[in-house]
């Protein structure tokens, strides 16, 4: 199965084999060195300083723990995650089923595919301010923002996954007298699932963008509020802490999901 994916990150995510224990330990050292390099550079740039509004890494960490300590961070994440999770779940359910339907039925493909191809390539973010204006500052507007950004990539990945299922496996199923339903459940969905999962991860990444934009553009709530507020009062370390935390949070979520997928969902990848 060598589907040429729209996004090479997805391809990479879909086909990243686990490593042996020895190189895993070596990898850990490299990772630590990599982290040290980045944060070290940040610290030095802050000390110089390259800009008055550029705090050191240590000040940012201190601000982060201060916000964790007084509970503002937790409250902000609570507010941010709620619409994010609702939006992601909605997008996942709608997106995967739409994408699979597109891959299986030519008529659905013809009708729906162009819409998502356009949405995928276009800067959908432009619509977010308008969504917020129309649906107010509540949960609805934010959920719509998340879906707007997350849906296209989930739909298109599911669609391509199903359209690029190994034809030889489908022929095999037919030759051993599999019914059309068995073909979908036992061949197409399992064979497509790595690319569908990759699409879901990309969708979650896009959902983070959606929620942050919604929070930054019109209604400062949650993490967006922390960023906007501390910027307004020139508390730059706190602002950086909020930004770095959401970026780190999204990166950790994505790699955590990948780990879960590799170790729980796909037995054939384990220990390879």
């Amino acid at each position: 199965m060598d589907a040429r994916l729209e996004d090479p990150v997805a391809a990479q995510m879909a086909a990243q084999p686990g490593e042996a224990a020895h190189s895993r330990r070596q990898n850990l050292w490299w990772r630590l060195a990599s982290i040290a390099l980045f944060f070290g550079a940040w610290e030095i740039a802050g000390r110089v300083p390259i800009n008055l509004a550029f705090p050191t890494f240590s000040a940012t960490v201190a601000a982060f723990f201060e916000m964790v300590g007084d509970g503002t961070m937790l409250k902000a994440y609570g507010l941010t995650l709620q619409p994010l999770i609702v939006g992601i779940v909605l997008s996942a359910v709608i997106g995967v089923s739409t994408g699979v339907a597109m891959g299986l039925r030519k008529s659905v493909e013809w009708m729906v595919a162009p819409v998502f191809i356009v949405l995928q390539a276009a800067p959908v973010a432009a619509v977010i301010p308008m969504v917020t204006f129309v649906y107010g500052i509540g949960l609805t507007a934010k959920v719509i923002s998340v879906c707007l950004l997350a849906l296209p990539v989930i739909v298109l990945n599911s669609y391509k996954a199903v359209a690029n299922v190994n034809p030889s496996l489908v022929a095999m199923c037919r030759s051993f007298l599999g019914s059309p339903w068995q073909q979908i459940v036992k061949i197409i969905l399992p064979d497509a699932s790595p690319v569908i999962f990759a699409g879901l991860r990309l969708g979650i990444g896009a959902g983070f963008v959606g929620i942050i934009l919604a929070e930054l553009l019109i209604t400062p709530t949650g993490i967006g509020d922390l960023i906007t507020y501390h910027r307004a009062v020139a508390n730059y370390a706190h602002m950086y802490a909020a930004i770095a935390s959401i970026i780190a949070f999204s990166a950790l979520t994505l790699s955590g999901l990948q780990w879960v997928e590799e170790n729980w969902v796909r037995p054939e990848k384990r220990g390879s």
Binding site: S34, A125, L202, L216, I223, M239, I246, I247, S250, A251
Partner: peptide, 22 residues
């Protein structure tokens, strides 16, 4: 690759919109 790869990967999928205020 070992030193930078992780960060490039993180930034390729991170919500960089959050950086625009900075």
């Amino acid at each position: 690759e070992n030193l930078l790869g992780m960060w490039v990967n993180v930034f390729a999928s991170a919500p960089l919109s959050a950086l625009v205020p900075v």
